[in-house]
Protein backbone atom coordinates (compact mmCIF):
# COMPACT_ATOMS: atom_id res chain seq x y z
CA UNK A 1 0.00 0.00 0.00
CA UNK A 2 1.25 3.45 -0.85
CA UNK A 3 1.15 6.48 1.37
CA UNK A 4 0.55 9.72 -0.50
CA UNK A 5 0.55 13.30 0.66
CA UNK A 6 -2.80 14.09 -0.91
CA UNK A 7 -5.82 12.07 0.17
CA UNK A 8 -6.75 9.25 -2.20
CA UNK A 9 -9.78 10.12 -4.29
CA UNK A 10 -11.22 7.65 -6.77
CA UNK A 11 -14.64 9.26 -6.56
CA UNK A 12 -16.12 6.42 -4.51
CA UNK A 13 -17.78 7.25 -1.20
CA UNK A 14 -16.51 4.22 0.66
CA UNK A 15 -17.59 5.57 4.03
CA UNK A 16 -21.21 5.70 2.85
CA UNK A 17 -20.94 2.08 1.69
CA UNK A 18 -19.43 0.95 5.00
CA UNK A 19 -22.10 2.86 6.93
CA UNK A 20 -24.77 1.22 4.75
CA UNK A 21 -23.31 -2.21 5.48
CA UNK A 22 -23.43 -1.61 9.22
CA UNK A 23 -26.98 -0.28 9.04
CA UNK A 24 -28.23 -3.12 6.84
CA UNK A 25 -26.74 -5.87 9.01
CA UNK A 26 -29.10 -4.63 11.73
CA UNK A 27 -32.02 -4.16 9.33
CA UNK A 28 -31.63 -7.03 6.86
CA UNK A 29 -35.09 -6.51 5.31
CA UNK A 30 -33.95 -3.13 3.97
CA UNK A 31 -31.14 -4.94 2.15
CA UNK A 32 -33.63 -6.74 -0.07
CA UNK A 33 -33.41 -5.08 -3.50
CA UNK A 34 -35.22 -5.84 -6.74
CA UNK A 35 -33.67 -4.63 -9.98
CA UNK A 36 -35.97 -4.07 -12.94
CA UNK A 37 -35.98 -3.49 -16.69
CA UNK A 38 -38.69 -3.54 -19.31
CA UNK A 39 -38.15 -4.57 -22.89
CA UNK A 40 -40.25 -3.94 -25.99
CA UNK A 41 -39.89 -5.71 -29.30
CA UNK A 42 -39.31 -3.26 -32.17
CA UNK A 43 -39.14 -5.66 -35.10
CA UNK A 44 -36.81 -8.35 -36.29
CA UNK A 45 -34.32 -9.12 -33.54
CA UNK A 46 -34.31 -5.48 -32.43
CA UNK A 47 -35.63 -4.64 -28.97
CA UNK A 48 -35.69 -1.48 -26.88
CA UNK A 49 -35.19 -1.71 -23.11
CA UNK A 50 -35.85 0.86 -20.41
CA UNK A 51 -34.29 0.96 -16.95
CA UNK A 52 -35.91 3.43 -14.63
CA UNK A 53 -37.08 2.10 -11.26
CA UNK A 54 -35.91 -0.39 -8.71
CA UNK A 55 -36.89 -1.41 -5.22
CA UNK A 56 -34.63 -1.20 -2.17
CA UNK A 57 -34.26 0.15 1.37
CA UNK A 58 -37.88 -0.84 1.87
CA UNK A 59 -39.24 1.48 -0.81
CA UNK A 60 -39.58 2.16 -4.53
CA UNK A 61 -36.56 3.97 -5.91
CA UNK A 62 -35.80 5.59 -9.25
CA UNK A 63 -32.69 6.43 -11.21
CA UNK A 64 -31.97 10.12 -11.70
CA UNK A 65 -32.89 9.68 -15.32
CA UNK A 66 -34.32 6.95 -17.55
CA UNK A 67 -31.74 4.80 -19.31
CA UNK A 68 -32.53 3.07 -22.59
CA UNK A 69 -30.78 0.28 -24.43
CA UNK A 70 -31.22 -1.04 -27.94
CA UNK A 71 -30.28 -4.64 -28.53
CA UNK A 72 -30.09 -6.43 -31.84
CA UNK A 73 -27.91 -8.87 -33.71
CA UNK A 74 -25.21 -8.01 -36.24
CA UNK A 75 -25.55 -8.29 -39.99
CA UNK A 76 -23.68 -11.61 -40.12
CA UNK A 77 -26.79 -12.98 -38.36
CA UNK A 78 -28.91 -11.44 -41.13
CA UNK A 79 -30.10 -8.78 -38.68
CA UNK A 80 -30.14 -5.01 -38.92
CA UNK A 81 -27.69 -4.30 -36.11
CA UNK A 82 -29.62 -1.58 -34.25
CA UNK A 83 -27.70 -2.22 -31.07
CA UNK A 84 -25.30 -4.42 -29.20
CA UNK A 85 -25.98 -8.15 -29.06
CA UNK A 86 -27.57 -9.28 -25.77
CA UNK A 87 -24.50 -11.36 -24.91
CA UNK A 88 -22.42 -8.21 -25.33
CA UNK A 89 -24.62 -6.56 -22.70
CA UNK A 90 -23.61 -9.42 -20.43
CA UNK A 91 -19.93 -8.67 -21.10
CA UNK A 92 -20.54 -4.96 -20.49
CA UNK A 93 -22.30 -5.84 -17.24
CA UNK A 94 -19.39 -7.94 -16.04
CA UNK A 95 -16.65 -5.50 -17.03
CA UNK A 96 -18.45 -2.49 -15.58
CA UNK A 97 -19.28 -4.31 -12.35
CA UNK A 98 -15.67 -5.44 -11.88
CA UNK A 99 -14.37 -1.97 -12.73
CA UNK A 100 -16.68 -0.31 -10.19
CA UNK A 101 -15.39 -2.86 -7.70
CA UNK A 102 -11.76 -2.05 -8.50
CA UNK A 103 -12.44 1.63 -7.76
CA UNK A 104 -14.28 0.90 -4.52
CA UNK A 105 -11.67 -1.54 -3.23
CA UNK A 106 -8.87 0.85 -4.20
CA UNK A 107 -10.57 3.68 -2.32
CA UNK A 108 -11.03 1.47 0.73
CA UNK A 109 -7.37 0.43 0.61
CA UNK A 110 -6.08 3.96 0.08
CA UNK A 111 -4.80 3.33 -3.45
CA UNK A 112 -5.02 6.20 -5.97
CA UNK A 113 -6.09 5.02 -9.43
CA UNK A 114 -4.81 6.97 -12.43
CA UNK A 115 -6.38 4.90 -15.19
CA UNK A 116 -8.24 1.62 -15.44
CA UNK A 117 -9.07 -0.13 -18.71
CA UNK A 118 -10.71 -3.49 -19.10
CA UNK A 119 -11.01 -5.49 -22.28
CA UNK A 120 -13.36 -8.43 -22.19
CA UNK A 121 -13.90 -11.35 -24.54
CA UNK A 122 -16.45 -14.14 -24.36
CA UNK A 123 -15.89 -17.23 -26.50
CA UNK A 124 -18.99 -18.90 -27.84
CA UNK A 125 -19.74 -21.76 -30.22
CA UNK A 126 -22.89 -20.56 -31.99
CA UNK A 127 -23.81 -24.08 -33.06
CA UNK A 128 -25.42 -24.13 -29.59
CA UNK A 129 -27.94 -21.33 -30.19
CA UNK A 130 -28.52 -22.50 -33.75
CA UNK A 131 -29.38 -25.97 -32.48
CA UNK A 132 -26.72 -27.43 -34.74
CA UNK A 133 -25.01 -29.54 -32.10
CA UNK A 134 -26.93 -30.73 -29.03
CA UNK A 135 -23.68 -31.12 -27.07
CA UNK A 136 -22.78 -27.45 -27.40
CA UNK A 137 -24.19 -25.08 -24.81
CA UNK A 138 -25.85 -21.82 -25.79
CA UNK A 139 -23.78 -19.61 -23.53
CA UNK A 140 -20.15 -18.67 -23.29
CA UNK A 141 -17.48 -21.37 -23.09
CA UNK A 142 -15.11 -19.00 -21.42
CA UNK A 143 -14.95 -15.31 -20.57
CA UNK A 144 -11.61 -13.53 -20.37
CA UNK A 145 -11.10 -10.08 -18.85
CA UNK A 146 -7.82 -8.20 -19.10
CA UNK A 147 -7.08 -5.14 -17.00
CA UNK A 148 -4.58 -2.37 -17.63
CA UNK A 149 -4.32 -0.37 -14.44
CA UNK A 150 -2.12 2.61 -13.65
CA UNK A 151 -2.22 3.23 -9.92
CA UNK A 152 0.05 4.43 -7.15
CA UNK A 153 0.58 0.88 -5.90
CA UNK A 154 2.73 -2.20 -6.42
CA UNK A 155 1.85 -4.80 -9.05
CA UNK A 156 0.93 -7.18 -6.20
CA UNK A 157 -1.46 -4.65 -4.66
CA UNK A 158 -3.05 -3.99 -8.06
CA UNK A 159 -3.58 -7.72 -8.60
CA UNK A 160 -5.14 -7.94 -5.16
CA UNK A 161 -7.57 -5.12 -6.09
CA UNK A 162 -8.74 -7.02 -9.14
CA UNK A 163 -9.02 -10.30 -7.21
CA UNK A 164 -11.02 -8.69 -4.39
CA UNK A 165 -13.28 -6.96 -6.91
CA UNK A 166 -14.20 -10.37 -8.39
CA UNK A 167 -14.94 -11.68 -4.93
CA UNK A 168 -17.44 -8.90 -4.24
CA UNK A 169 -18.94 -8.58 -7.74
CA UNK A 170 -22.65 -9.26 -8.28
CA UNK A 171 -22.28 -9.90 -12.01
CA UNK A 172 -19.25 -12.16 -11.53
CA UNK A 173 -21.39 -14.19 -9.15
CA UNK A 174 -24.35 -14.19 -11.55
CA UNK A 175 -22.16 -15.56 -14.33
CA UNK A 176 -20.08 -18.05 -12.38
CA UNK A 177 -22.92 -19.52 -10.31
CA UNK A 178 -26.35 -20.82 -11.31
CA UNK A 179 -29.49 -18.72 -10.75
CA UNK A 180 -33.09 -19.89 -10.88
CA UNK A 181 -34.95 -18.11 -13.66
CA UNK A 182 -38.74 -18.06 -13.98
CA UNK A 183 -40.32 -16.80 -17.20
CA UNK A 184 -44.11 -16.47 -17.27
CA UNK A 185 -46.61 -15.35 -19.87
CA UNK A 186 -49.52 -13.10 -18.87
Amino acid sequence: MTTTDTPVNNGVNVQALLDARNALVDAPEAAQFTWKASTEWKGGTHSHSVVEEFFGLGDDQAHRTTFTFDADHPEVFASEDHGATPVEFVLVGLASCLTAGVAAVAQNRGIQLNSVTATIEGDMDILGILGGDPEVRNGFNHIKVKYDIDADASQEDIEALVAQSQKRSAVFDVITNPTNVTVEVN
Binding site: E156, E159, A163, Q166, K167, F172, N177, P178
Partner: peptide, 28 residues
Protein backbone atom coordinates in the same frame (compact mmCIF):
# COMPACT_ATOMS: atom_id res chain seq x y z
CA UNK B 1 -20.51 -26.64 -5.46
CA UNK B 2 -23.13 -24.00 -6.21
CA UNK B 3 -26.13 -26.25 -6.75
CA UNK B 4 -27.22 -29.80 -7.48
CA UNK B 5 -29.83 -30.34 -10.20
CA UNK B 6 -30.92 -33.72 -11.60
CA UNK B 7 -27.99 -35.50 -9.98
CA UNK B 8 -25.46 -33.08 -11.40
CA UNK B 9 -23.41 -30.75 -9.24
CA UNK B 10 -23.10 -27.26 -10.67
CA UNK B 11 -19.65 -25.91 -10.01
CA UNK B 12 -18.79 -22.25 -9.69
CA UNK B 13 -16.56 -20.66 -12.33
CA UNK B 14 -14.72 -18.72 -9.62
CA UNK B 15 -12.02 -21.33 -8.87
CA UNK B 16 -9.18 -19.41 -10.48
CA UNK B 17 -9.98 -16.18 -8.66
CA UNK B 18 -10.35 -17.86 -5.27
CA UNK B 19 -6.96 -19.57 -5.71
CA UNK B 20 -5.45 -16.30 -6.90
CA UNK B 21 -6.88 -14.46 -3.87
CA UNK B 22 -5.42 -17.04 -1.50
CA UNK B 23 -2.01 -16.84 -3.22
CA UNK B 24 -2.01 -13.04 -3.01
CA UNK B 25 -3.03 -13.07 0.64
CA UNK B 26 -0.33 -15.60 1.49
CA UNK B 27 2.27 -13.51 -0.32
CA UNK B 28 1.13 -10.43 1.58
Amino acid sequence: VAGIVDGKAQLSGSLRNLCNLADLKMDR
